[in-house]
Amino acid sequence: MTDTTDDIAEEISFQSFDDDCKLLGNLLNDVLQREVGGRFMEKLERNRILAQSACNMRLAGIEDTAELLEKQLALEMSKMTLEEALTLARAFSHYLNLMGIAETHHRVRRARSMTHLSKSCDDIFNQLLQGEVSPEELYSTVCKQEVEIVLTAHPTQINRRTLQYKHIRIAHLLDYNDRPDLTHEDREMLIEDLVREITSIWQTDELRRHKPTPVDEARAGLNIVEQSLWKAVPHYLRRVSNALKKHTGKPLPLTCTPIKFGSWMGGDRDGNPNVTAKVTRDVSLLSRWMAIDLYIREVDSLRFELSMNQCSDRMLKVANDILVEGLGCCPV
């Protein structure tokens, strides 16, 4: 029997998703109204209605009417100039991107609202122990486990980094919009921020005007490391470590690396004449630079986080040893 509370929660969650779609769709329409004018928006709306009506007729099994609507849609589009057709395609493309952002946000929101994740590390470890796996065996097996993620890149998978950041910004604004303590003024400012981002997206060229090089492809791949993996992997490993400590009494060892990375970027010698020894070297240096830059950011954050002016004798000795070895100076 379905829990009524779960049904209500699901209904509320879907209503929030619908609200997000309406919000982003209406804001995009407002932006387009200013950017391309009311005359073109009438054409866009007419094409949208014809396409939606044709789909509805086909779903209802009314094929003759659907064909007539599709012919009318084709006629409408044939009357457009190349510039108008491009603007129409861009408008629908951006609309679909915004709906995708809303859907992803909806999925995250649903996951957060779940009181119990049946596939969480804690639950899986608990099931294994109940299945007569000893804590020692569980600990040993988890510590020995290795998963290698191999990064690759392809020119057809590259989205402009500028647009990626704008999409991320919109997702963050939707997340902020879910806060129950927002005032009327807060929501007005949030709407202004969304309008600013959507306007900026529309005024940004989506296409690369030059063919991406293998180094460009690698740079786009490393962007995924910077945006997602750099935070997501340690967060996941911390969850595994906490669950392991709860069920076995011991966390993951600091030297344990259950997730490793490999890369084909800039080194995929499958006959591509553009991947040369120089490209491989440049991509390797780029990867090293990215790793160093990410670590420097973390160290810089630690400088502000670790504000203590006292430490143990052991920590002081380690710090002095590092200074002596790395800088060649006298110990404090």
Rank of each mutant, 00 (worst) to 15 (best):
N309V: 15
T248N: 09
A66R: 10
M57L: 10
P135S: 03
A102F: 06
T81P: 01
C329N: 09
G271P: 07
N242A: 09
R239W: 01
E217P: 00
M1R: 07
D268I: 01
T4L: 14
D3S: 12
E132Y: 07
L294F: 00
D300W: 04
R219I: 05
N309Y: 02
V225C: 07
E197L: 12
S118T: 15
D293E: 13
P273C: 03
R90H: 14
T183L: 10
L86A: 15
V195E: 14
I124Y: 06
A319D: 07
P155W: 06
M80Y: 05
L229G: 02
M315W: 04
D293Q: 10
P135K: 09
W289I: 01
I149C: 04
L173C: 06
R107Q: 14
V147N: 12
R281W: 10
H172I: 01
A218W: 01
M77D: 11
A153R: 04
N223Y: 10
S200K: 03
Y236I: 09
L88I: 01
R281M: 08
D64P: 00
E35V: 06
L286R: 02
H116I: 11
V324F: 05
V215K: 15
E136C: 00
Q33C: 04
N29Q: 09
E70N: 13
R269Q: 06
C55V: 15
D30H: 05
L294C: 05
L174K: 14
C329S: 13
V31Q: 06
A51Q: 14
V108C: 07
T152R: 03
K317T: 11
V275K: 07
R314L: 08
T4Q: 10
S140L: 11
N56F: 03
R160T: 12
M77A: 11
